[in-house]
Simulated assay, not measured.
Amino acid sequence: MSILVQVLLTFLALSACLGDVVTPWKHRLRTNMLKESIRLLDQLQQMEVSCNKMNVTNIFADDKRGNNMEILCKAATIARESQSCHRYLEGIYHNLLSLVWGTRAGHKKPCSVAAGSTTSLKNFLKQLHQVLQEEYKSRK
């Protein structure tokens, strides 16, 4: 057998295994981002900051909510808009985008959020914390 055939067979064998290797890595990465976001939200909720009473769009108002990825995408938009309130919101914003869009999050924009009912930033963070915990439990 020529060296070219051996190399091609090795390449094909490795390519076939690649899907199995990448999937657990991505799952662990997303799980770590969820844990990090939950940790940041825990810390942020324990702090008293002046903008906790700031109004943000209540993306959790709809009882049917849809899928969590849509909620997380909208939450990224609100976190981006509220970054001036606290530096932890920047980390939460980037983690949420990465959860929604994967590794190419830097090239994607968060979802648009239609004006509607509002809630305080503090309440928004509490509800986001609950959604992230639900998502984390569902991925275990």
Score class of each variant (00 low, 15 high):
Met33Tyr: 11
Arg80Gly: 11
Thr119His: 01
Arg80Trp: 14
Asn32Asp: 15
Phe124Asn: 01
Leu99Pro: 03
Arg80Asn: 13
Arg28Asn: 12
Ile3Gln: 01
Ser138Lys: 15
Phe11Gly: 12
Lys35Gln: 07
Asn68Cys: 06
Cys73Tyr: 09
Asn52Ser: 04
Glu81His: 08
Arg39His: 13
Thr118Tyr: 06
Ser2Asp: 09
Leu12Thr: 07
Ile92Lys: 11
Leu34Gln: 14
Leu72Phe: 15
Gly106Trp: 14
His86Arg: 05
Leu14Thr: 02
Asn67Thr: 06
Leu72Val: 08
Met54Ser: 04
Gln83Pro: 06
Met1Leu: 02
Ala76Trp: 09
Ile59Ser: 00
Lys64Met: 10
Tyr93Asp: 10
Glu48Ser: 07
Cys73His: 03
Val49Lys: 02
Asp63Lys: 14
Lys74Ala: 13
Leu29Pro: 08
Asp20Ala: 09
Asn95Pro: 07
Arg39Phe: 13
Lys64Thr: 07
Thr103Lys: 15
Leu14Asn: 02
Lys126Leu: 14
His129Tyr: 13
Ser98Arg: 03
Ile78Gly: 05
His27Gly: 03
Ala79Arg: 09
His129Ser: 15
Ala75His: 07
Gly19Met: 13
Leu97Asp: 02
Gln130Ser: 14
Lys137Thr: 06
Gln46Asp: 08
Val5Ile: 10
Pro110Val: 06
Val21Glu: 01
Glu48Phe: 06
Leu128Ser: 14
Ala75Ser: 14
Thr31Lys: 12
Thr57Gly: 02
Ala13Ser: 04
Ala79Gln: 12
Gln43Gly: 04
Thr119Ala: 02
Leu128Gly: 10
Asn58Lys: 04
Gln130Cys: 11
Ile3Cys: 01
Ala105Pro: 02
Thr57Phe: 03
Ala115His: 02
Phe60Cys: 07
Phe60Asn: 08
Val7Thr: 05
Val131Trp: 05
Asp63Tyr: 12
Glu135Cys: 01
Leu9Tyr: 01
Leu125Gly: 02
Met1Cys: 00
Gly102Trp: 11
Ala16Pro: 05
Leu40Gln: 13
Ser84Glu: 03
Asn52Pro: 01
Tyr88Thr: 06
Met69Asn: 11
Met33Phe: 12
Leu40Ser: 09
Glu90Trp: 09
His129Thr: 15
Lys26Ser: 11
Gln130Gly: 08
Arg28Gly: 03
Asn67Glu: 13
Leu4Phe: 14
Ile38Arg: 00
Ala79Gly: 11
Met69Gly: 07
Gln83Asn: 09
Cys111His: 10
Ala79Tyr: 14
Cys111Ala: 13
Leu34Gly: 07
Arg39Ala: 11
Leu9Val: 00
Leu97Ser: 04
Phe11Trp: 10
Val21Lys: 02
Thr119Leu: 08
Lys64Pro: 05
Phe11His: 05
Asp42Gln: 04
Leu34Pro: 06
Ser138Asn: 08
Asn67Leu: 08
Asn67Met: 13
Glu36Phe: 12
Lys109Gly: 07
Leu44Gln: 00
Ile78Phe: 09
Ile78Ser: 04
Glu90Cys: 07
Val22Leu: 12
Ile3Asn: 02
Leu12Phe: 06
